[in-house]
Design a protein around this nucleic acid. Structure first.
Lengths: 230, 230
DNA sequence: GCGGCAACTTGACCGGAATCAAAGCAAGTG
DNA sequence: CACTTGCTTTGATTCCGGTCAAGTTGCCGC
């Protein structure tokens, strides 16, 4: 079992990264690998999420439905991120949906909670991670509150490249966007049309190059950063 | 020491609410009561916060400074809320500032971390609380992304009355707003002028009554809820 | 190759919130 | 009391992004 973890592709980034071999073994025995196809939901808002997981590959979205009925995306999950709400009962507030095909390393919630109780170090790590996520969400809140449409889109693209690209946001980096224009709009609090216009504007400025809607290349990182307002 | 906790005004709401007497005693010995005057900061962005605390009375804000130089408020803290970032080193991203005079029950961070390690139950409670806070922040993100100025202001007033008023948001409830118009604007991602206009509009509709800028009375909760878009 | 459908792009127009500018108003000071 | 100071309200104007309405592109099965 343990060697399964050692070959894990998010071995260095995930919650389990800092665990001692013994702790890793304890987790490993209750882990199940699982694949979710693009577009499929892992949880739905209103369900009680009965498992916890680490995202191993792919990208997921956290999406809620507004009073008006449109989708709003309140967060994205990348490889290494933790999914689930230990010690929290009741219905989830958002859907957790795969944007690409994803692979998960999942644990029954009750057993994961028991493991947390038994390994305070694991719990401390998860707490630290959750606090970091809270900070990131608040930073996002900052951007959503005040930034212009152009800054939102540019900032989103920067984030995306930083998290998906191997080298970070440098000239020449190319990534495949895991979100449609509609999903970008739902994430950024804009309309599809505005997102599209801003993308073509950034392309016109020479900051990015697009091929076929989802293939994105960064041509001028500094320009993109300036557009993002930083 | 223990009896000091038992007379605590947030005994039923704070993190320590669910602790056993022994655990409570362990925390109690390292606790310091502290008062912060309105307008004073507990932490500043860039400092490393070296203490953890429970807010006992008053209201605080979490505020960051945008690239443009204006203040942006990313969260509010009410009695019973936890302050601090155990297991997270490095500079804080936001200022933590008292809006009213506040009373805190504070712990040196290192000792609080030790207590968490020793009492997994306490740690589990804090984790649950942090996850809940994350959910609340995401909900706020939802509102900030899409809602109109009127809906933001109405929703804010509802939240405020619900958390400050004794009975929740019912007709006749009166509260003193702990934020200036400028702070409301910084929280809601609007300008002072727009906040002011929306307040007078809500008053014109008969949803609220204002006296002297900060005294707020709810006259029609249902109308206010409708304006908030829910 | 060709249709057909969904996603994306582009354009014209409109409305809500920002911006700019001036008053009100309350509290403190000499 | 006159005067300052800071906060709030109100008004006039501007502009960004939403809305409505066509196109255009790309991709699938056939």
């Amino acid at each position: 079992m343990s060697n399964r973890c050692e070959s894990c592709m998010v071995r260095d980034r995930a919650l389990c990264a800092a665990l001692a071999p013994a702790e890793l073994a304890a987790l490993s025995v209750m882990a199940t690998r699982r694949t979710v196809a693009a577009g499929e939901a892992l949880f739905r808002a209103g369900d009680e999420p009965l498992l916890c997981a680490t995202l191993q590959s792919g990208v997921m979205k956290l999406s809620a439905t507004t009073a008006g009925g449109e989708e709003a995306i309140v967060g994205l999950l990348f490889p290494g991120d933790f999914i689930g709400r230990p010690f929290t009962t009741g219905a989830a507030g958002q859907d957790v949906v795969a944007l690409t095909e994803v692979q998960l390393c999942s644990f029954p919630r009750a057993r994961f909670e028991a493991a947390l109780a038994e390994h305070p170090r694991l719990e401390a790590l998860l707490l630290g991670r959750t606090l970091a996520e809270l900070d990131r969400t608040r930073e996002w809140l900052l951007r959503m509150g005040r930034a212009s449409a152009g800054a939102r889109v540019a900032g989103f693209l920067e984030d995306m490249v930083r998290r998906l690209g191997v080298l970070g946001c440098t000239a020449g980096t190319t990534v495949e966007l895991p979100l449609s224009r509609g999903e970008m709009a739902a994430l950024l609090g804009l309309t599809i049309e505005t997102v599209s216009r801003q993308m073509t504007r950034l392309q016109g400025l020479g900051a990015i190059a697009l091929r076929g809607g989802r293939q994105l290349m960064i041509t001028a990182p500094a320009l993109l950063a300036a557009e993002a307002g930083r």
